[in-house]
Write a protein that binds this DNA or RNA. Structure first.
Lengths: 251, 251
DNA sequence: CTCAATTTGTTCGTATGTATG
DNA sequence: ACATACATACGAACAAATTGA
């Protein structure tokens, strides 16, 4: 007659109230629960998530602390705010990406000239003999939204050190007439905030991030530029235009 | 003189050992710790993450259960495997995306014809008067990797019900000569597994997902197709080609 | 072969957090 | 709010296996 943990779904990892809070937050973000609206009662949520009352309360408290919910005894719990909408990265080619990056507020965290290579799986391309490592943080509205490292072929770095350690790297490279980039791609995955990243982005260790690796190849197939960045989940949104035959745009 | 919790960094949310495990897992995935290699000792990791011995051990146990680490008393802890590399979604236009989707193994979970609209923020486009809701799960190697709902204009759905409830929707639409799609885009963000999603994808409630919203507009600017999908973090990877001036591809 | 250093594993005690009923 | 159980996390000490001097 013990019947210790009679829950139906997974309960391995993170605390229940965090998981529940994440789902509730998503309902607010997605508009499923609109701003000002009364959300389901504790009893309903208990049944839906199959958890105890306290667990719902804890989840609500998390979202209260984030300013998204307000609870009133006897009345109910209401959506008191929505996270500001995300800005979409819409760049579809190198040029527009560089243009977008230009307006970023960048703080360089460190610069190293090392022979260590950016660890990458297998030989999709060749490496330069050595790279400069430029570690930086991007800010928007005084909030950090992205951290990462640019690995820049030392040979290129040396040509204009002073500017490279002050400005966003990508636009500078494209401006250099002696460097010809013939191939560029960006790989996106869901990553994890490491020690440094979590501190710089002001998020928890192990939180999910959007992980981006941007690689630029020159005419001989050498990766002269490799950028490896983490974007905080809060700030990441990307739009991929797959088709646009619209003849005219609305005025 | 109690000095209860003298930790420097955040300790609000998920358990420490989960956070640490996530970071260590990432080190394996990214190749920072190579297969077969001995990783840092418990003492080193304790110092690095500023946690107790037990916490490191718990993290190691998590990764042992996943088959990524093996620990040997007296010798050390070694990387015993790497998660299989992700497949990159490389579609850059509607056609190639539809082609890629064709080979997916799809199980339709439910079909509804409802007047309820897919909740979306504001008026980027117009809605059809009503939509059919087709909820489905995608499989690869007998593992679910994506779940979501396709909202298909009822008018189109009615034209070929039988096939729409059996096959991937996207290719079918493009084949229909009477439907002209003039605009299509895909929005990507980092989402969260809700109740249903977590069950179908066999991940925990509240785990991060790649969230994709694909919208197809016809000539009059009406969204005739809206797909809203969650991809498990394990299986999501996307490549965006930003430039390709390479004259010839290697044989 | 013995000894010491290294490294993982285990255990005790304590404190706090999580979750049920 | 309460009683209960279990999970998380610390510190510290000790045990057991491995390696190399």
């Amino acid at each position: 007659m013990t019947k210790v943990q009679p829950i139906s779904f997974d309960r391995r990892r993170t605390p229940m109230y965090i998981q529940v809070a994440a789902v509730m937050r998503h309902r607010i973000e997605s508009g499923y629960w609109r701003e000002g609206e009364k959300i389901s009662t504790a009893v309903e949520l208990m049944a839906e998530f199959n958890v105890a009352r306290i667990t719902i309360q804890q989840a609500v408290r998390v979202l209260q602390d984030q300013g998204l919910l307000s609870a009133f005894p006897g009345r109910g719990t209401f959506v008191s705010g929505r996270p500001k909408p995300k800005l979409f990265d819409q760049a579809s080619n190198l040029k527009s990406l560089a243009e977008a990056v230009k307006s970023n507020v960048v703080k360089i965290a460190s610069v190293e000239e090392g022979r260590t290579l950016p660890f990458l799986k297998d030989g999709e391309f060749d490496f330069a003999p050595s790279y400069a490592h430029i570690r930086s943080v991007q800010y928007k509205d005084n909030e950090p939204f992205s951290v990462g490292t640019v690995y820049l072929s030392t040979e290129i770095f040396e040509r204009d050190k002073k500017r490279f350690i002050k400005q966003p790297t990508l636009p500078l490279i494209l401006e250099m007439k002696r460097v010809k980039i013939v191939q560029a791609f960006q790989d996106l995955t869901i990553g994890v905030a490491g020690l440094e990243t979590s501190k710089l982005l002001q998020i928890d260790l192990g939180e999910p991030t959007a992980e981006s690796r941007l690689v630029l190849l020159d005419a001989s197939g050498v990766a002269v530029f490799i950028a490896h960045f983490h974007y905080s989940r809060e700030h990441f949104a990307m739009r991929r235009v797959l088709l646009d035959k619209s003849t005219s745009s609305k005025a």
